[in-house]
Nucleic acid binder design. Structure first.
Lengths: 145, 145
DNA sequence: ATTCATGCAAATCGTTTGCAACCCA
DNA sequence: TGGGTTGCAAACGATTTGCATGAAT
C-alpha cells in the first residue's frame, strides 16, 4: 500500500490525506504480521508523531477498517486488535489461540470453502466472509502437560 | 440441567446455590435457542425476581460461563450474549450473521474436524474448541438484491 | 457461626463525541 | 476559502469492584 494509492482511496470517498492518517497506516504496514492493539498502535505512532491524539487513532482505524485496508481482530482479551488486510493472500488465515499462554499462531489452510457451499445449498445463506478462531494448546504448552 | 445437579456443581467449587443464581439459569434454560444479551437476561429475571441487581446477573453469567453451563457469544453489536451450552449436541453449531438485516441463523454442520486434524499435524497445535462466524446474506436479503 | 453472595453505587476501561482551532485540497 | 480533520476533554456504555448487609450451609 503506497501513499499515492492511499491518497486516491481517500479522495474517492471525499476524505483527505493527513500526516496522522499516513502515520497510522505506516505503523500497521511496518508491523505486518503482528496483531497490534489500538493502544499499541497509538504508542508506536506517538514515537514518530508525538502530538497525535488517541481519538485520531481510533477514528483512523475505523476509517481503515471501513476501507478494508485493515482487519479488526478479537482475541477475547478486551482489546481491539488490527492487522494489515493482505489482499494478495489467497485465503484469509485463521488464528490458533493457546488457552494456556495466550500465544496466537496462524493457519493458512482453508477448508471452509466446501462448508460455505453446503451452507448456501442447505441454508440458502450466501456466505461472503467468515471468522474462525481455534482454541487449544500450542506445542510448548502441550508438552508441559 | 435440573436444580439438584446445579447445586452439586456449585458445591464442587465451593459456591452456594442462591435463588438469584437459579433464576438466571432458569431464564437461560427457558430461552434455549435464543441469544440473549446480559441486559435482556437481567430484564427477564427481574420479572420473577424484581430485587435482583445487575451486578449479580453479571457475576452469575461469569460463573455459568466458567462452569461451561452457558456459552458466551459475540455478534459484534457491542453486547455480550449467551446461549445454553447444550452438551448432548453432537457438535457445536455455528452462526450465520446477515450483513444486511443482522439476523443470526445457525448451522449444525461441522466439517471442521478434518481441519483440526490438519492443524494438529502441521502446526502441532492441539485444538480443543473453535468459534466460527459466517457473514453473508440470508435468503430474504439475498433476494432483495 | 462462618463463609460466601447480594445490592448498591462508585470506579474502571475502551471507545465515541462535541467543539473550537486547524489544515489539506 | 471551505469543508474535512485534529486534539482535547467530556460523555458514554458495558462491565467490574468495594463494601456493608444479608443469606446459605
Amino acid at each position: 500500500m503506497d501513499s499515492i494509492n492511499f491518497k486516491d482511496l481517500l479522495k474517492e470517498r471525499g476524505y483527505k490525506l493527513t500526516p496522522q492518517r499516513q502515520a497510522v497506516l505506516d505503523i500497521i504496514i511496518e508491523h505486518n504480521g503482528e496483531h497490534l492493539s489500538t493502544e499499541e498502535i497509538y504508542a508506536l505512532v506517538k514515537e514518530k508523531y508525538p502530538d497525535i491524539g488517541l481519538a485520531t487513532v481510533y477514528r483512523t482505524l475505523l476509517l481503515l477498517d471501513d476501507m478494508d485496508l485493515v482487519y479488526k481482530l478479537d482475541f477475547d482479551d478486551g482489546l481491539s486488535r488490527y492487522e494489515l488486510n493482505n489482499k494478495n493472500e489467497d485465503h484469509r488465515h485463521h488464528h490458533l489461540i493457546c488457552l494456556n499462554c495466550s500465544k496466537v499462531l496462524e493457519v493458512q489452510e482453508d477448508l471452509l470453502d466446501t462448508l460455505e457451499e453446503q451452507i448456501l445449498t442447505k441454508n440458502k445463506f450466501k456466505v461472503t466472509d467468515h471468522r474462525v478462531k481455534f482454541y487449544g494448546y500450542c506445542e510448548h504448552c502441550s508438552e508441559k502437560e
